[in-house]
Amino acid sequence: MVYKAQSGHPGGSLSCIDILVGLYRSAMRFDPDNPGWGDRDRFVMSKGHASPAVYSILRDVGVLEDSDLDGFRSLGSVCQGHVDRKWTEGVDFSAGSLGMGLSFGLGSALAARLDVSERHTWVLLGDGEIQEGQIWEAAMAASHLEVANLTAIIDRNRIQNDNFVDDQMRVGDVASKFHSFGWNVIEIDGHDMSEIVSALSEAKASDGPTAIVAATVKGKGVSFMEDNPAFHGAAPNDEQYAEAMEELS
């Protein structure tokens, strides 16, 4: 997708795709034949530039088709540059401006509580994204309002747009920060499927908001993209594409 469009964000898509597989294949209450089912779990991709990961998992579960993915970032395509609920079936949240998704997820979770529904809300955050102050407004409110049906997963890939997170603006001990805001915290390897599945299950059963801090590798699976800030928001060229596809196959 990113190669074809020659624009997009491969690094942060590859770092979170294992988590999305865990969500859609094991944890989420979701019917691919009826993606708009009102009582489905909600998934909020707050780091909306990782849209290729969302479109890939929606293709994998059968909501989107290959031709949809082929149009990524082109005029009129259902696969917009950043995930957008108005354009894409199966997308619950319109992202693109970082820091807003956890608040939206809190609203979703409160609505489920009012509806006395079992549905759960899952929010995927970037580790650079949590530099936004609104994330901590939402974190404080979720614990104050004792919301149990909300899980935040932090894709801790340690790289943001301009540089490594530690160089740009340290976010420090993310697990401790969420813990001090009153959240349950689970730390996992974000590329170990058994750890992902078990953490999602534990989060769903928990009696308060849960943060899963997932240690990940930006650009996971493509050697020249791994841990490389240059591939936060850059498309591979012809040779790089061929090399990447060989490594991923």
Binding site: R42, G99, S103, F104, G105, G107, S108, A109, L110, G133
Partner: peptide, 14 residues
């Protein structure tokens, strides 16, 4: 800011 998006999440759910 949080209030605005909490509203959006509630609105999405009807």
């Amino acid at each position: 800011q949080n209030m605005a998006l909490v509203g959006a999440g509630l609105a999405e759910a009807g």
